[in-house]
Design a protein around this nucleic acid. Structure first.
Length: 588
DNA sequence: GACTGTTAGG
């Protein structure tokens, strides 16, 4: 039993500073990985009724969902009350003193318009609007705290041929969207509004770069940064920090990051806590442990000592690399430098233990936290629940999940995905429905990973007919499939033995513009191997070679399987050889 | 007025 639980410990961590000694503090009853046998799991239901599952996933998640519009309608009603009753409050606001009386009455009309009819209202009032100072009206909407109407007004101005946008108007809307963390909206806004004709200030550019970074549009951020320099503006320390984050999240950008750090040095900009944590996190994503450590050592100077975020980022680098001794050394150094570990520090530490297979020690860190006066949060519990799941203690995981709220936490989409993934693996479909029901009543919106998990569940015999329906519902909810969605679906068909459907999806994936990854190819080979269609398997391997995707051990083993299935002896011998070769050269 | 670190599947 124990051997099975600890099978994942990387050999480097087998003799860590912290051996498998028992934690002396008794963990609370609900957290124990007790020696007792868990109750036998309920028998998996033979089929899952999609008719009961899909409504649980679909009711609340489209971007223009009913819940959003209800909330908007409520706000709008509240605003009307404000306008009808205490109309004067807003206009007595000294911050609106700059507004002309005409602009004031327009502001009043705009605030009282329901969002959906606002564009047509603006259109019918365009003569009045163009006669006033539109920037001041935009500013008033911002001060009134109504960024949604400000955005609609801005978009109307941008689309209206005779109105003219100005740099202050752009700065204003960028700042408002940034403050509201509407990064996706901000980044989309400038798909239609061309920025090239305007010169906005460096702070607004930085906010926009940040919006691109947060919505994953890294190439656009890089391009905008280039434009900023061409326009002759001087990036600030914050601009550099954002760009370091962009390159860090893109991955494989060591040279660019070093280039930016050099530029900063040339401009005599000192690294701050943001710079250091961002650069270290970037090293961690690329697995550059030595580089992270070197950068960290160079950082320390009489004028700069690392703060908690930097230490946590460094801890994360070692944690990801599975290096428990180095991770523990970071904690020690923090304490020596009177930098008090916080919840994030402990969450990373719990995750390190769990990742290394030390589930019990991970769970008992909850008690260490309690002793140190650090309250475990949703992230902590999500990690521990995931640990129980990995240890095969699904019932403990579930009971901790159901206790979360009593412990003062609100499960988030990560928590739900952890539990759903665990249950999907064990095909505990009845409980999946219960969890989805809870997810809905918590108002937690399923994301792409939730949908992919449900798609993976369709890889059960007899369920392949649901795959396309789930995909359609997913799209209907505004969640776009990604490469992993296709991989999941190909695997699902593979597990059901639907080789033809898997192949069809593979073509659809290419048509949708996603480059197949090694796992796509292996999923496809898996589907083919079961049928013994070695011709198809050979052509997949040919395709891999042409796309410069190196087949791995699994790929050759699946090719071998398809030969074996068809009793093709010559092919078997050859692929056995390739399989052995792949095994001896672990790259790829 | 802007910026950083933790958790989910494959």
């Amino acid at each position: 039993m124990e051997g099975a639980i600890f099978i994942n410990i990387p050999s480097a961590t087998l003799q860590p500073a912290k051996p498998r000694k028992r934690i002396t503090t008794e963990p609370p009853q609900h957290l124990k990985f007790g020696p007792h046998l868990p109750p036998p799991p309920p028998p998996p239901s033979t089929s899952l009724s999609l008719d009961s599952l899909l409504p649980l996933l679909t009711h609340h998640n489209s971007p223009s969902s009913s819940s959003t519009s209800t909330a908007t309608a409520n706000r709008s009603q509240q605003r009307l009350l404000v306008i009808d009753g205490a109309y004067t409050t807003l206009f007595n606001d000294p911050r609106l003193g700059f507004l002309s009386s005409k602009a004031g009455s327009l502001l009043c009309c705009i605030l009282s318009q329901p969002l959906p009819t606002l564009p047509s209202f603006l259109h019918s009032s365009r003569l009045e609007i163009v006669a006033i100072d539109t920037v001041s009206l935009l500013k008033a909407l911002d001060i009134a705290g109504d960024w949604e109407r400000a955005l609609i007004f801005f978009q109307w101005l941008a689309a209206d041929a005779r109105s003219k946008l100005s740099a202050p108007a752009i700065e204003l809307i960028v700042r408002a969207l940034g403050r509201e963390s509407q990064h996706t909206l901000a980044s989309k806004l400038f798909d239609s509004v061309l920025l090239d004709d305007y010169l906005i200030d460096i702070r607004a550019y930085t906010t926009l770069l940040h919006a691109y970074a947060r919505s994953g549009k890294y190439k656009r951020a890089v391009e905008l940064f280039r434009q900023i320099k061409i326009k002759g503006l001087t990036p600030t320390i914050v601009t550099y920090n954002v760009m370091l984050d962009v390159y860090g999240k893109m991955g494989g950008s060591r040279t660019h990051i070093l280039g930016l750090l050099n530029e900063m040095r040339d401009r005599r900009l000192e690294c701050d806590e943001f710079t250091s944590s961002t650069v270290i996190a970037a090293c961690g994503r690329d697995g550059l442990v030595d580089e992270a450590l070197e950068f960290f050592q160079q950082l320390k100077s009489p004028t700069f000592s690392p703060g908690i975020v930097t230490y946590n980022a460094l801890l994360q680098v070692f944690a990801k690399a599975g290096n428990l001794p180095l991770a523990l050394r970071v904690i020690k150094e923090m304490e020596d430098n009177s930098c008090i570990p916080d919840a994030v520090t402990y969450n990373e530490l719990v995750a390190t233990y769990v990742r290394a297979g030390f589930y019990e020690e991970g769970a008992s860190l909850l008690d260490t936290m309690a002793i140190k006066g650090i309250t475990p949060n949703t992230v902590t519990y999500t990690i521990v629940i995931g640990g129980y799941g990995k240890a095969g203690k699904e019932n403990e995981a579930l009971s901790l999940f159901w206790r979360l709220k009593e412990l003062g936490c609100v499960p988030n989409v990560f928590t739900y995905n952890t539990v759903l993934g665990m249950l999907a693996k064990k095909s505990r479909t009845k409980e999946i429905l219960e969890i989805l029901l809870q997810m809905r009543s918590d108002g937690c919106v399923p994301n792409r990973i939730t949908w992919n998990t449900i798609l993976a569940l369709c890889g059960k015999r007899g369920m392949e007919k649901y795959v396309s329906r789930v995909l359609a519902e997913m799209k209907n909810c505004g969640v776009e499939p990604d490469r992993d969605t296709f991989n999941t679906m190909i695997s699902a068909y593979g597990r059901c033995g639907s080789g033809a459907r898997a192949l069809k999806l593979y073509h659809e994936m290419n048509e949708a513009g996603f480059h197949p990854s090694l796992s796509s190819y292996n999923a496809l080979l898996n589907a083919i191997a079961r049928k013994g269609d070695w011709h198809a398997a050979e052509s997949v391997l040919k395709d891999m070679n042409s796309k410069e995707c190196k087949p791995n051990e699994l790929s050759y083993s699946l090719l071998l399987q398809s030969y074996a299935q068809a009793r093709h002896l010559e092919g078997s011998k050859l692929s056995k050889l390739k399989f052995m070769q792949a095994r001896s050269s672990p790259a790829g």
